[in-house]
């Protein structure tokens, strides 16, 4: 399955959350590949703790591959190369975890028809080796998003694969409106996809929203604020829920809400069992939210033509 991580705005938590999902699935035994298409701000190497591994990515990264400058995009075995202390010993029963980094220098660029073919060939080839492929797209209706949209259309080459979109947003008015616009707006994914041959109801059924870094009012510190603050927060929450529903982001389309996590606020990283249970630095709720979301990616109950 192809999981496409998108967001309208930058800094939503898309890359960090997607990397955590990839990590969780590989812990569960799935073979997972993470493709860093976030050409504007590649962060995957930081999240997976691969400081030196990506130095070699110039000229061999995904940009170079898509533009036909190399026939073999660089692959980095995360379990073997990571410097994250908790990840060095690959747990038994875990699956492969491989990163395909972008070139370090590159940025966004428009794609040609040949690039789409190369993308399709790459995904088909990776399908043999991996149960799940994550694609981290840059913010907005980027060139990369268009490329993927075209490739996954019924005649694009990947139309018959299971493809699922995650639209990440923060839990604020501006972010909610922007996320809805990215999915359903005039220049959004569904409209653009329809123009490329997607069936709108099918495409729409494969898009779900993820609230990243959303404060959970029922747990600390928010549950311990003053009564006046709490009431005010609840009202804001209510207004936001209504706004989201009015823009098409109804409850059924929200796949998960990842709590605001201090550890992630300070560092782009994977949240491990050790962080929660041994070091006590990350919240149990964060880890659980990541795990649940990771499971829901392939749970058909959460996906459908609505």
């Amino acid at each position: 399955m192809l999981v496409l991580a998108a967001s309208d705005k930058g800094g939503t938590g898309r890359s960090v959350t997607a990397a955590n999902l990839a990590y969780q699935r590989s812990l569960d035994g799935d073979d997972v590949c993470f493709l860093d298409f976030d050409f504007g701000s590649p962060t995957a190497s930081a999240v997976f703790d691969l400081p030196d591994a990506v130095v070699g990515a110039d000229g061999r990264g995904l940009h170079s591959y898509l533009q036909g400058r190399t026939s073999e995009p660089l692959r980095i075995d995360v379990w073997a190369r990571t410097e994250h202390p908790a990840l060095r010993d690959r747990p038994s029963g875990s699956g492969r975890l491989v990163l395909l980094p972008g070139d370090r220098t590159g940025g966004e660029f428009p794609f040609a028809e040949a690039d789409r073919h190369r993308f399709v060939d790459l995904v088909l080839r990776l399908r043999h080796e991996f149960d799940l492929l994550f694609v981290d797209l840059s913010a907005g209706r980027s060139y990369a998003a268009d490329l993927v949209l075209a490739a996954t259309s019924p005649h694009g080459g990947l139309g018959r694969q299971g493809n699922r979109w995650l639209v990440f947003h923060r839990w604020t008015r501006q972010h909610v409106m922007a996320a809805a616009e990215l999915a359903y707006g005039n220049a959004g994914l569904v409209r653009a996809g329809a123009a490329m041959g997607h069936r709108p109801e099918v495409l729409s059924g494969s898009i779900r929203f993820v609230r990243a870094a959303a404060p959970d009012l029922e747990s600390p510190p928010w549950s311990q604020v003053s009564p006046a603050q709490y009431v005010w927060l609840r009202q804001c929450e209510q207004v936001l829920e209504e706004l989201a529903a009015a823009r098409g982001i109804c409850k059924a389309r929200v796949l998960a809400s990842i709590p605001l996590e201090p550890v992630l606020q300070w560092q782009e990283r994977l949240i491990t069992d050790e962080d929660v249970h041994d070091h006590g630095i990350a919240h149990h709720e964060t880890l659980r939210a990541m795990r649940d979301l990771a499971q829901r990616l392939t749970d058909d109950e959460f996906w459908g033509p609505w």
Binding site: D31, G95, D121, L124, R125, R127, H128, E129, R160
Partner: peptide
């Protein structure tokens, strides 16, 4: 890649393998 693009292939692989 050319052979794998053929439309009769369903890509419903029974197990993950190593290329």
């Amino acid at each position: 890649a050319r052979v794998c693009r053929h439309r009769i292939l369903d890509f419903d692989l029974p197990l993950t393998t190593v290329n």
